[in-house]
Design a protein around this nucleic acid. Structure first.
Lengths: 188, 188
DNA sequence: TACGATACGGAGGACCCCGCCACTTGGCAA
DNA sequence: TTGCCAAGTGGCGGGGTCCTCCGTATCGTA
């Protein structure tokens, strides 16, 4: 491993750093060209390290996502399983809403998304982190049956996507999440 | 009114027709250039009739949306107010999920969206149609208080956006809607 | 029929993504 | 240390889009 040349690794890091800022500033489809320019490398180099835009986005968000995963692990043995799940969802929502481009990176690829060894995908990473919380809560009967962690993440992603425009995306997104959690119109 | 020249009106119609197909085929950001080409007009003409991409999308979906509004009116005096609201939401979801680009057109503009006389916006149109249903249901205590029709539409939009990729977007979107309606984890 | 406002569309600039390919450079072996 | 070769680089060109400007054609009317 790491049979990579030293300069290649340096460039990788440089590009990643610049990409972080650029994505934060201009959202999910920041100009790759621009990133290359301010990183001081050719555009081909960017494409070499990150063959697709998604690859770049995922790399950018990877460590950030890790924080959420850690949070999930912390909550894994909380006393109140329902509260734990909800808190994690809330954290996810807040985080996605405050990080430009993250939601877009979470929604699966265009095609009937099955690509080999995509385990490191941000979405998969999050699923791993959240699934235990959902399972525990389900065992306590706190959530509707037949619900998967992917459902929840998709829901959150959607909410964040639809509120990105809003003056205050964060609180708006959390409001809608609360709504969905409580139920728009639960059975009586 | 209609002080428009005849050829202008013809072109408008042609462009709109082509745009419908093109958007259906390639989603919300179909190539305006391409639309102009297959409509047999210059790209400037497209931009003249529809200054912004949103304007074009809204024109494309306007009549389609009207169907949903009519449905809302039909449901306005149903006996079961809750069922009426839910059915409308379901119809909206199904419709948005099966019509490429619609969801994208529903999410408000990038900037802190306040543009004058935007009453004819698709979103506003839908709000008008759905609000009575929500109000009636709320009066019967069937929905959580403090919820606006915009909230619901945003929720649906988000769900559709996040499921667009899915092999079967329609059923997936409706599943998630059902989930949100029933509540992910309602209070006991 | 002639004229003026209205509408058209092509050209050109700016940007972007993408693939190719000749060149440089880093790291290993002698 | 030196030399070599693969790994890595970046610039260039092609194709595409969006957008604006401006000379020109056309419509509708006087």
């Amino acid at each position: 491993m790491s049979t990579q040349r030293a300069d290649a690794r340096r460039n990788y890091a440089r590009i990643l750093a610049v990409a972080e800022e650029e994505v934060a500033a201009h959202g999910a489809n920041a100009s790759l060209e621009q990133i290359a320019r301010t990183a001081g490398v050719g555009s081909a180099t960017v494409r070499r390290h990150f063959p697709t835009r998604r690859a770049l986005l995922e790399a950018v968000f990877h460590e950030r996502i890790e924080v959420l995963c850690a949070r999930g692990r912390d909550l894994a043995d909380a006393a109140d399983t329902r509260a734990a799940l909800l808190e994690w969802l809330s954290a996810l929502t807040a985080y996605a809403a405050s990080t430009r481009g993250l939601a877009a990176a979470l929604i699966p690829e265009g095609a009937a998304g099955f690509d080999p060894q995509d385990v490191n995908t941000c979405a998969a990473q999050l699923s791993e982190a959240g699934r235990p919380l959902l399972l525990r809560a389900a065992k306590d009967g706190a959530v509707a049956p037949g619900m998967t962690i992917e459902d929840l993440i998709t829901l959150v992603t959607g909410i964040v996507l639809a509120t990105e425009h809003h003056p205050d995306p964060g609180t708006e997104a959390e409001r809608l999440l609360g709504l969905a959690v409580a139920g728009v119109s639960p059975q009586r």
